[in-house]
């Protein structure tokens, strides 16, 4: 990858321009493949394609890119855009049966939720073989005669990955944070700020700093310490981490004890909300599990925030 590509990767990780980070679907040649070369199927998210090109440099494979609307393999399979039908259609459109002499294609393992290997043969005449989870293991997989051990088949979630996927929340939450800032200033004007613009600004920004602390706790701290924080539910991890980190803005900004408690509660509620949203970035949470924790903890988050705002406002009126 050249330097501009590295720069673009950083932007895409943040979510900027991600919607248009796509590759045209179709058959691509990597190196100089011939009629016996393996065919590797992938999505059309450019970040994935870049990793493929980098990890498989020096190899000669055919790359069959399917239309997933710029979404990664796993999410596209889960959302049913990376399907057996889509793969079969791209196989036919690219006349793959005239390009290679064999009749098998290598699917990413994580396309499994969308692609049924045994149905592919009926649909397009090519049978699907599930490759490893990671592209970096693909050459070893192919050299071993399309065999993968459990270590190639298992998803892991190390610190570097947990943080890499957390960055997308930063950019994604920009509108939300702007609205929160306005709401904080408006609420400050109703009470704690009195009628002085300077006081409104300081009270409003103080409240916003509390929200921001909760946001950063939920978005970065909980993912970073994920296996170390007690509780299974992400929302519960966020409540705990937010309440502890909330001591910082409470200690620095609060004038009275009720104000400090309000800040801790608000920080805890926001940290819980954003930690709960991190479930979508992890490779191990299930629909049942996330559904359950949302039903259980969203009332807690809402209740905490409501009490925090009321305490903050009412104490200023007394």
């Amino acid at each position: 990858m050249k330097l501009p590509d590295v720069f673009k990767t950083v932007l895409v990780r943040l979510g900027i321009g991600r919607d248009s980070y796509r590759i045209a679907p179709g058959l691509y040649a990597l190196g100089s493949p011939d009629t016996d070369s393996p065919v590797v199927v992938t999505c059309n998210f450019k970040l994935t394609f870049d990793i493929l090109r980098r990890e498989l440099a020096g190899r000669s494979y055919w790359l069959l890119v399917v239309e997933t609307y710029g979404i990664n393999v796993w999410c596209a399979a889960g959302k049913k855009s990376f399907t057996s039908e889509e793969v079969a259609q791209r196989v036919k459109e690219s006349n793959l049966d005239k390009v290679v002499s064999h009749r098998s294609i290598i699917l990413p393992q994580l396309a499994g939720p969308g692609v049924s290997a045994h149905r592919l043969r009926k649909l397009c005449g090519f049978s699907g073989v599930f490759g490893p989870v990671h592209i970096r293991d693909l050459p070893r997989f192919i050299d071993a005669g399309m065999q993968a051990g459990p270590e190639m088949r298992t998803v892991k979630f190390p610190l570097s990955q947990r943080l890499a996927v957390a960055f997308v929340e930063l950019y994604g939450a920009r509108k939300f944070l702007l609205w929160v800032l306005l709401a904080c200033l408006l609420a400050a004007a109703l009470g704690p700020g009195g009628f002085s613009p300077v006081k409104i600004l300081s009270a409003g920004l103080g409240a916003f700093a509390t929200v921001l602390t909760g946001f950063l706790t939920g978005v970065f701290l909980v993912p970073a310490l994920l296996p170390r924080i007690p509780f299974r539910a992400f929302a519960a991890k966020g409540l705990l981490a937010g309440a502890i980190i909330g001591l910082i803005p409470a200690g620095l900004l609060a004038g009275t004890l009720p104000q400090a408690l309000a800040q801790i509660m608000a920080c805890s509620a926001f940290a819980s909300w954003f930690a709960m949203h991190y479930t979508g970035s992890t490779p191990f949470t299930s629909l049942s599990g996330v559904d359950r924790e949302m039903r259980r903890y969203m009332p807690v988050q809402g209740g905490l925030l409501l009490i925090a705002v009321l305490v903050w406002l009412i104490w200023s009126w007394l």
Binding site: G112, P113, H277, G280, S286, L287, V290
Partner: peptide, 26 residues
């Protein structure tokens, strides 16, 4: 199990059932 549904979709014998979906709060 994270209920991704890959096993059920790829079981030619229909031996697996799962209420599949994405475990994503949003």
């Amino acid at each position: 199990c994270m209920e991704c549904g890959a096993c059920a979709l790829n079981c030619p014998a229909g031996a697996l059932q799962v209420r599949s979906g994405v475990g994503c709060a949003q």
